[in-house]
């Protein structure tokens, strides 16, 4: 029987290929199910916190700041303020093809911002587009014709576009 000693020739580090591609179905829950349903009606809805009086958009079943259940539903406007943004500029497998803009927008009547794609900008010059977006232009909601009950049923575009 061969014996291994400390001065054996080193072997190259071994790599074993693997994958982790299980399938899931995410349960959107009570508040989000209604939120997405209302997207189908062309409406963006939020929920009201009875304590801090914030209209939470996208809708949630409870306010995690006050720790109370939300009560009423409120429709919010389809125009809003771009709170911040980024322009995805490098390609990564599994992420959207660049260049593409995502941003947080507070819609009229909402107390919180929601994240989505900001489409319709000329992105041939990324720096120029970024300068334009830094000025926090007004944006508006555009619904897609085909809706499937996902956040991508709508997107934002500059209101003056």
């Amino acid at each position: 029987m061969a014996e291994l000693t400390a001065d054996q020739e080193p072997v190259p580090p071994l790599t074993i290929a693997g994958h982790w591609d299980f399938r899931y179905q995410y349960f959107a829950g009570d508040a989000a199910s209604r939120f997405f349903h209302e997207l189908g009606n062309g409406r963006i809805m939020g929920t009201l916190c009875p304590q801090c009086q914030r209209v939470l958009v996208p809708a949630r079943g409870f306010c995690d700041a006050c720790y109370v259940s939300t009560t009423d539903w409120r429709q919010v406007g389809d125009r809003g303020r771009l709170e911040t943004f980024t322009i995805l500029a490098s390609r990564f497998p599994g992420l959207p093809d660049p260049p593409v803009v995502i941003g947080y927008v507070t819609l009229a009547g909402a107390s919180t911002a929601l994240l989505n794609f900001v489409l319709g900008l000329d992105l041939t010059d990324v720096e120029a587009a970024a300068t334009r977006l830094l000025a926090q232009p007004a944006v508006e909601v555009r619904f897609r014709d085909q809706r499937e009950g996902r956040i991508t049923d709508f997107f934002f575009q500059l209101a003056d576009a």
């Binding site: 995410y26 996208p58 593409v100 995502i102 929601l114 994240l115 989505n116 794609f117 996902r150 991508t152």
Partner: peptide, 8 residues
Amino acid sequence: PVYERDTG
């Protein structure tokens, strides 16, 4: 996964 992941 409900509200934000689709944005990449």
